[in-house]
Amino acid sequence: MAGIEQVTKPSAGHYCVQLEDNPDIRKLVPTATLQYRAFDYGVRIAMQPNSACGNRTDTFLVNTGTSGTYADAGFSIVVS
């Protein structure tokens, strides 16, 4: 599996994760875990091309937040 090429943050709680070697993200399985946050925080992953990330097939969107509001939070991710 390729590593991460780059991560960009287009807005609060939105992270675009671009993978090396241009894999098709629709064929991958991600797992994300928040780091050092209260229990009311959440993390979600969109494994399809997303307009926030330029609709690229090698880039997926990770959202973090709390109480229905996007908010920045650290996370770990594994993609297989």
Rank of each mutant, 00 (worst) to 15 (best):
I45K: 06
D58V: 02
Q6K: 14
S67N: 15
V79Q: 04
S80H: 14
I25H: 13
V43N: 05
V62I: 15
T64S: 03
Y15F: 13
G68T: 09
R37Y: 00
S67H: 14
Y36R: 14
Q18Y: 00
G42P: 00
P30C: 12
N22Y: 15
R56N: 14
I25W: 12
L34P: 10
R26I: 04
Q6Y: 01
Y15A: 00
L28A: 06
A73Y: 02
I4C: 12
Y36E: 07
Q35H: 02
N50F: 00
I4K: 11
Y41L: 02
M47E: 02
T33E: 14
Y36S: 13
S51M: 11
F75S: 03
G54Y: 11
T8C: 11
R44M: 03
L61K: 08
T31H: 11
I25A: 11
H14I: 12
T8S: 15
F39K: 11
D24R: 12
T69K: 09
G3H: 05
S76G: 10
L34Q: 13
I25P: 12
P23Q: 09
V79Y: 03
F75L: 03
N63A: 09
L61T: 05
T33M: 07
Q48M: 07
T33S: 13
M47C: 03
L61D: 05
V7G: 06
T57F: 07
T8R: 13
P30S: 08
V62E: 04
V62L: 05
V79W: 07
V79T: 06
N55C: 04
M47T: 04
L61E: 09
N55L: 12
D72E: 15
D21C: 00
G13R: 03
D40A: 06
D21V: 01
